[in-house]
Amino acid sequence: MAYLAQKPPLAPPSNELRSRIPGWGVDLDPKDRPAVPKEQFKPDATGAHWDFPERQPARWPREKSPEHAFLTPVFGTACPPSGISGAIRRYAYRFSEGRTSHWLLLLMADRIDVMESRVGALLKGRPDSRLMETGVLSEFKRHGLRSRLGHHRADVKHQWIDVLLFAAPYLAVTAGALYFATRRTPARRILRDR
């Protein structure tokens, strides 16, 4: 037990494990593991034939973290920032990664980006399809019910929250519309009073 000096005998003998488990102990020596020690200075073994890479041309003012001294020589060019979400993203990159504002602004921009894209797709004639894009049809082809029921899955217990979260924006919009439709505006009051 932990209350005595010797470690309790918790494991079978190594010989038994070696005969039972394929490959047992082939990397037993901690000093002979690929990432030991953690830092190994091997600048000539990486395949790089430059001291500092050539710079990739920037086709637009590329957003960058203020924690970098300059724009890194190579960077991704997927999805340049645009629209309101793009403006928020550019603003977010004024803050360091240590600031919560940086990440919360980026998360907010992500949600606005989704709304902008939905409208954009509709205008371009290729509207989003919840049925096709969520892959929900696989529920019928890939045993949706059978995969969930009777298997002690922890996630099944709180899937009702997903339904609430799915319905929440629709319920909010409906409630808002009902409120504005039924509230007593001054014009409506005048009409009614006549």
């Binding site: 190994q40 073994a45 973290s65 924690e67 970098h68 724009l71 890194t72 960077f75």
Partner: peptide
């Protein structure tokens, strides 16, 4: 990269230093 910590490369991600 010179220390074989390729996942920490400092020359490829302008968006974050972490």
């Amino acid at each position: 990269c010179a220390r074989e910590l390729y996942s920490c490369c400092h020359n490829v991600n302008p968006n974050a230093s972490a």
